[in-house]
Computed example of a mutant assay.
Amino acid sequence: MKKKHHTLHIRNIISGMLIGAGIAGAATVALFALEGAHILQANSLQETRAERLTEKAEKVKVRRAQRVKRLGDTTSQVASGELANIEARNAAESAGVSCSYLPPENPTYSAKFIAPNNRIEEKRGELFVATLYLENTGNMPWFGDSSGCSHLPLVRLGTAKNRDRKSELFDKNYWLQQNRIAMQEARVNPGEVATFVVAGITPNVDDMFREYFQPVVEGVTWIESPESTAVVDLYAGFMRGAAPENLKYFRFSGKLSEAEPLLNGEKVIEVDISDQRVFFKSGGKVIAEYPASTGTFRTPTPLGRFKILNKQELRIGSARPHYRMPQWNGFTSRGHGFHALPYLANDNGVFWNEALNHIGQRVSHGCIRLLPEDAKDFHSLTEIGMPIVIHN
């Protein structure tokens, strides 16, 4: 249709020129007219080609957009893929966080809470906030959720005792999920301190909530030690005030109202000689467990049922070489007892270090040795008259 229109237009031009110039110059005018017609046709073809190229470019843009969308959908589904890793690194670099580090020969993850015990008193329905500070005492950098380094293991705070439990304090506005809390910093290098914020709305009950936390390097390891364990106690409503007497036996996460039957139950100390471990039970539940070192086969720890007979902060043996035994809990009249690693007054720690290296082995003279921190904890739980069961 366009071609026919252009042909008629050319004829009109030629006719006009012939009339205006006369018969004599008709040939010349016709020649110029034909040249002008060719120019018009060329321009028309160029316009047609340009339109077609524009349409093709638009189609290419649409196809590319569709491909990018499909690629984005695929990336979200395979976050562990190489494309996701590249995008994560790029995002981190854009945010000013480096995902790079020189791996140490022996990677170590360890941590220490600066203030592990946190008590909050809050009215029902009000916001509670506990800020926990955790020092990176290992030799590996930690990366948080905001780092953009999703191709690397992320460090978060996880619920503990029992591990990965669904917390009653969970709030979707402040927690990642029911058992995870994000690290506030994008990256925490060895020697630096990470921040974790435990927050939510105080439950609408009069109760005390206890939640234990430990750091976890997702997909790699939990950082599990007494130093890397923190506890948050939330006293809600009328529970605000003095802590209950039996709170020292509350060694697990949960509500006090549900834990009280266990806390008020019978306390029993159990020693397993074959495993070289000591268990402290309340209401039948193990609330504390310690590695131990019991008597040799020549000087065995006695088997059977006993009771705590006496307690001392430091017991000094009457016979040479006069061993020093901190956090003493005696259970026989023959001098058997639980105590921290023994030491001598004037050997510069040689005997103490030997005892430390032998924890978990049968090397004592019949007593039950515990690590120093474990012995302090055990000593705080025991009372005179508590029953003891020792078995193979």
Rank of each mutant, 00 (worst) to 15 (best):
T159F: 02
A160E: 06
K166L: 14
N139C: 04
G148E: 05
R163Y: 12
L154H: 03
G138S: 08
D171H: 12
T159H: 09
V205A: 04
Y133N: 14
V197S: 04
G219I: 03
T195C: 01
P141R: 00
R124S: 10
L169Q: 09
G219F: 01
L134E: 05
M208L: 15
W142I: 02
V129W: 07
Y174T: 05
V197P: 03
E122N: 14
G219V: 06
V155Q: 04
T159C: 14
S150R: 07
I181K: 03
E121C: 11
L132A: 11
A194R: 00
L152H: 05
R187N: 02
Q214D: 04
R156A: 06
N189W: 08
Y133I: 05
M208S: 13
E192C: 01
T159N: 07
N136W: 00
N118Y: 02
R210W: 09
Q184F: 03
E192V: 00
R165I: 15
G138N: 09
Q177K: 14
F113V: 11
L152T: 05
R124W: 06
V217W: 03
V197H: 05
V129D: 08
A186W: 00
V197D: 05
V155M: 10
E121I: 09
V217Y: 06
N162P: 13
R210I: 13
L152E: 10
N139V: 10
N189Q: 14
L169K: 05
V188N: 01
G138P: 06
K123D: 10
G191K: 08
